[in-house]
């Protein structure tokens, strides 16, 4: 599996570290909304298809990346820097972006 880092270009997956599901939205750290925290920690979409993921190019430029990977085919359909992408997941969904 190759991931095309926006800085380094195509690199073997061995250079990357999976940082988790990119669909999660962490509640405000001061929040006592236990349902929101429970959802953040446990609820996963587990799709058979395109999945929003966060990866770090830990063995390269060390940038954090927002990756869309197909869980059936491992096809990577988009890779972008997390930095500079300040749009929240909720707003991205509302705007119809993945």
């Amino acid at each position: 599996m190759l991931i095309t880092c926006p800085y380094c270009g195509p690199r073997d997956v061995i250079e990357f570290t999976y940082q988790g599901d990119g669909n999660r939205e962490r509640p405000d750290p001061a929040s006592q909304n236990f349902e929101a925290w429970n959802a953040y920690v446990y609820d996963r979409l587990n799709p058979a298809g395109d999945h929003n993921e966060i990866w770090q190019h830990s063995g390269g430029c060390r940038a954090h990346l927002r990756v869309v990977r197909n869980t059936l085919t491992h096809e990577i359909s988009s890779v972008a820097f997390v930095r500079g992408d300040h749009t929240s997941i909720a707003r991205r969904k509302a705007e119809g972006k993945s």
């Binding site: 380094c8 250079e15 063995g59 390269g60 060390r62």
Partner: peptide
């Protein structure tokens, strides 16, 4: 320049 890894040696 390139950043890469050889057996976890950055």
């Amino acid at each position: 320049g390139r950043s890469t890894t050889h057996h976890d040696v950055f």
